[in-house]
Structures are given as structure tokens and as C-alpha cells.
């Protein structure tokens, strides 16, 4: 690698802070200015990610979890999308301070993104191998070396006879294989952070498990930090170390995975738990969360979950609850988090 030599001591030529977390997202806000008004997709989101850790970001459609990923990657369509506040630091280097050229050095090489639907995320008119090796070729790797490395990557993600598959087009791959190829592409430059945006949503259940397993394996092998964006509590349980629950562009709860499952500290998380089928609770009727997710162009005042919350009080309609540490290692943005825990 020539011009964009990857040094472990710098990010895009800026010296790193060795004590800083791998990825530090602080008070991130993203809005979309549309003809129909301003849509607040992400509202003051903060989280940290350590090397070797898997952080799950959990939320339903429209909770801003994918926009968050795009903002961290720096690929929000602008206009209409604008980052209005906050910072994203990679090893202490603020990515929003970087020039576009420096930012580009970070994308793909220091952090990469695995998209939800590999069929649309891969370019239909180029071969899979070409698209993987492109990442290396644009960074000065020779054609033959890039091809060799791409085949190696394809083998690593478990694609049989990768040498022949190199020249296949995306539509000639099965859904699971496409997602594997997508994963291979994201690992091509050995990134520090991989953001997987609903990586298994478009796949069959059996293939889902295989792909999740592969991701977990590769994460250990490459010792990278992984952000797993999903709406699927089941997926989270198997691989994540920590969970951030998002609602209406904000985090409402953050916890270690097991303690969260044991006892949610936010009514929304509780609602989510009740709405998924569980093997140990056969015969119990599932309870959906009543109502619709809020319109991000008109988020209700106070706690944004108040219209759907079964415990909502007057204070919830007026005051935005602070995101605070309720118990050691447990964060919640509910006025009544303690009461909720005691009640259960």
C-alpha cells in the first residue's frame, strides 16, 4: 500500500490518542431537511465502542439506527441530510474535523460498512471479485495482488471454489453468498471498526445464523470493534456484548447484554421483550407495543415514548428524561426507571 499506508499510530495522518476509546460517538444529531419539514433522524446519540467489542444498536424501523451508521461513516446524502451537532472520534481523532480527502482515507480502510441488502449494495454490472479487489486497486495495490487477496478473502468468508467465483456477477450468487462477499469486501483493508447495518435482514433464517456466526468469528480473528445494527433481539443475544436501544433517534437504554435481558430498565425495551416469541414462554400471548413509532418530523414533547408508554405520567409529557446511570453499568432515559425495576 503506497499513498494511504495504514499506520496504527495515526488516523488520516493525525496522531491518535492511545487512551481514547476506539470509537466515540458523542451527542450526534442528524436531520433531513425535506420539503415537508425537518426530519430529526438522530437526536443527540452517544455511545462508545472498544476494540474487540460488539455493540448492538437496537431499534425499530425509523429509529435512526441506519442514519447513525451513515453519519459515522460520513456517507449521509447531503442535502437533504445534515449533521447538526456532535462528534465522532476514531481513536481520539475527530472525523468531522477532517477534510473530505482525509475522510475518504478513513472510509473503507479504517471503518467499513456492511449493508443490509447485498443484492442492491453490490453493483450489478461488475463481477463480485472486481468489486472487492477495487478497494485494493484504488489504493495502489497491483491488479494481480489485488485479485489474489480478493480470492483469499472470499475463501475466508466461506465461499467454495472462490477462484472461479471471483468472475461471477452478484446476481449469480445466492443471497447468503452475496452477503458473505459483502463481508469479505468490508474486511479487505483490515478495518478497526466494522458497522453491520442489519446484515441478516434480507436472508433466510438458516442462512442468518450462518452469517452471524461468520461475523462473530471474523470479529474475533481481526480483533475489530463491531457495531451491529438490528431490530432483531434474537440476533443481538448471540453475538453482542453491549446493547444500545434507540427510540426516535435517541438512545433510551444501554446495558450489558445479559443484564438487559434479565431486566429491562426502560418501558420501550420491556415492550420489545414482550413482543418477541420465547421458547420458555410457550402459550403466552405476545404483547405488541401499542401505537406507531413517532413521526420524526413531529417528535412529541417530553419523553418521545410517552404516547405509547403504559406507565406515562404528567412529567413524561413535559420533561425530556435525562439519560443517566440508573444502576452500575445500566443506563436508561426514563423518569421512572427505578420504579420500573422494582415493580418487575
Amino acid at each position: 500500500m503506497t499513498t494511504e499506508t495504514k499506520s496504527r499510530d495515526t488516523v488520516a495522518g493525525k496522531p491518535i490518542d492511545p487512551d481514547a476509546p476506539l470509537l466515540d460517538v458523542d451527542n450526534l444529531s442528524v436531520e433531513f431537511r425535506t420539503d415537508k419539514g425537518v426530519v430529526n433522524a438522530v437526536n443527540g446519540l452517544s455511545y462508545e465502542l472498544e476494540a474487540g467489542e460488539t455493540l448492538a444498536i437496537l431499534g425499530e424501523s425509523g429509529s435512526g439506527k441506519s442514519v447513525n451508521a451513515q453519519a459515522v461513516m460520513g456517507i449521509v446524502d447531503s442535502p437533504p441530510g445534515f449533521i447538526t451537532s456532535g462528534s465522532v472520534r476514531l481513536k481520539g481523532v475527530d472525523l468531522f474535523d477532517l477534510k473530505e480527502k482525509e475522510r475518504r482515507q478513513v472510509r473503507g480502510s479504517r471503518m467499513s460498512l456492511i449493508f443490509q441488502d447485498a443484492l442492491t449494495a453490490l453493483n450489478p454490472v461488475y463481477t463480485v471479485g472486481w468489486q472487492i479487489s477495487e478497494m485494493l486497486r484504488v489504493r495502489g495495490v497491483s491488479k494481480t495482488d489485488a485479485k489474489e487477496k480478493a480470492i483469499e478473502l472470499l475463501e475466508q468468508v466461506g465461499i467454495p471454489s472462490a477462484g472461479d467465483r471471483y468472475d461471477n456477477y452478484p446476481h449469480e450468487f445466492s443471497g447468503g453468498m452475496r452477503q458473505r462477499a459483502m463481508i469479505a469486501m468490508s474486511l479487505a483493508l483490515d478495518p478497526d471498526v466494522v458497522i453491520a447495518d442489519e446484515p441478516t435482514t434480507a436472508l433466510d433464517v438458516t442462512v442468518q445464523a450462518q452469517v452471524m456466526e461468520l461475523l462473530a468469528e471474523l470479529q474475533k480473528e481481526y480483533k475489530m470493534g463491531m457495531i451491529l445494527i438490528t431490530h432483531d433481539l434474537g440476533v443481538v443475544a448471540d453475538v453482542a456484548d453491549r446493547v444500545v436501544v434507540m427510540y426516535a433517534g435517541k438512545e433510551v437504554e444501554q446495558a450489558e447484554i445479559f443484564s438487559l435481558y434479565k431486566k429491562p430498565f426502560h418501558p420501550y425495551t420491556e415492550g420489545l421483550m414482550h413482543s418477541i416469541p420465547r421458547a420458555d414462554q410457550k402459550g403466552i400471548r405476545l404483547e405488541p407495543i401499542v401505537g406507531q413509532p413517532p413521526d420524526l418530523a413531529a417528535i412529541p414533547p417530553g419523553c418521545s415514548f410517552n404516547p405509547r408508554c403504559p406507565y406515562a405520567q404528567d412529567v413524561c409529557l413535559e420533561e425530556v428524561p435525562a439519560f443517566r446511570e440508573v444502576a452500575p453499568g445500566r443506563f436508561s432515559a426514563c423518569h421512572f426507571a427505578e420504579e420500573l425495576v422494582n415493580r418487575a
Binding site: 451513515q70 461513516m73 456517507i75 475518504r104 482515507q105 478513513v106 472510509r107 473503507g108 480502510s109 467499513s112 460498512l113 449493508f115 441488502d117 442492491t120 449494495a121 453490490l122 453493483n123 450489478p124 477495487e134 478497494m135 484504488v138 489504493r139 469486501m185
Partner: peptide, 11 residues
């Protein structure tokens, strides 16, 4: 999506 992928690849 594939255009977004291209951007995310650092092209």
C-alpha cells in the same frame, strides 16, 4: 445502494 457502497469503500 451500490453508489453508497462505492462511497463507503472510500472511492
Amino acid at each position: 445502494d451500490f453508489v453508497r457502497t462505492a462511497t463507503a469503500k472510500g472511492l
